[in-house]
Design a protein around this nucleic acid. Structure first.
Lengths: 167, 167
DNA sequence: CCCGTTTAAGTTGTGCGCAAGCTAATAGGG
DNA sequence: CCCTATTAGCTTGCGCACAACTTAAACGGG
């Protein structure tokens, strides 16, 4: 690789660096993909993708949730979750049903197969912890920082988003 | 949301939790998407997606790189980068050319338009730092942890992958 | 009670992200 | 020099991720 870094601007100490390695966003993005890459072969063995696994985790915790609750819990879009949930339904792991007293709401519930799958996945988090290779304290520290980051960003984008809506 | 957490296994202190909020992978995944979400409107203003921006960052640093070098720098696949690079080429930001002395290699080089785009993006990192809302020290700490995580995972998957290849 | 508004979910289109398979060019051993 | 293996890149297919749009049900003020 052509290793000159003399493009204009990088020497100015008053401006943030534009070098790849200085981008925190890239470190974060690469780490996230690396971790899901560790999950992939483990989940592949039971026929799940990583986002599908996250939906199952929520269901194992609550047994029944609405699509809206999944959207909120996973910070994902209806456009992402609707087809994903349908795929899990096609695999027999969950069932979808409109709520009788409010037909707008779709309830997602575990099937016996979905419940049983949990046993086959019990050991996965151990393998992940092993691959990540950080201490319990380091993971806790990183988790605290990243949770605060996400909360800050959510506040930020909520503020600059709808912006009180002009009357 | 049905808030019982009596699914089997979660009370056992010897086993890792399967609750969503205890999943470090999810914190990481959510944080990564949150940050790219902050970039989105800023990059949209200049017609770039976030991965396209990362490619441009590498090019602004090195002016000319091979596709292989982009694959290595961004930890991305040829299958991801090839069409992405072609889109950037279609937008006039870079040019692709096969190396004369080794026709397997494709060199990617900045065009004047690609170089000029850098000026229009100079202030973006400041806005990102603002939205993230962590101190410089906190970001440095998180970055150190995540870099080590990615390095560990890379070692791990390299070790369990080709596995020295039986003779 | 009607009608505009809000809400929950689904649909469509584009662009990643990655596995699997393919092609063409080069390297390297006999 | 041939011939096999390797290397760099491309293509195909599937599943996210998200914006923009659509639909249908419930709400709520007049």
């Amino acid at each position: 690789m052509n290793d000159d870094t003399r493009a204009p601007g990088n020497g100015d100490p008053a401006e943030p660096s534009l070098l790849l390695d200085d981008h925190f966003c890239f470190t974060l993005y690469a780490a996230s993909r690396a971790v899901t890459g560790v999950y992939r072969p483990l989940l592949d063995a039971v026929g799940l993708t990583y986002p599908q696994y996250l939906v199952m985790v929520v269901l194992w915790e609550h047994r029944t949730v609405t699509v809206k609750e999944l959207v909120a819990a996973l910070h994902l879009d209806y456009g992402t979750l609707t087809p994903l949930i349908k795929r899990l339904e096609a695999h027999g792991l969950l069932e979808r049903q409109r709520r009788a007293d409010d037909e707008r709401v779709v309830e997602v519930a575990l099937t016996p197969e979905g419940t049983a799958l949990r046993e086959r996945i019990r050991t996965v988090p151990l393998a992940i912890g092993d691959a990540i290779g950080l201490t319990r304290e380091e993971i806790a520290a990183a988790q605290d920082l990243l949770r605060r980051l996400t909360a800050n960003v959510d506040r930020h984008t909520a503020g600059t988003g709808p912006a009180v809506k002009a009357p």
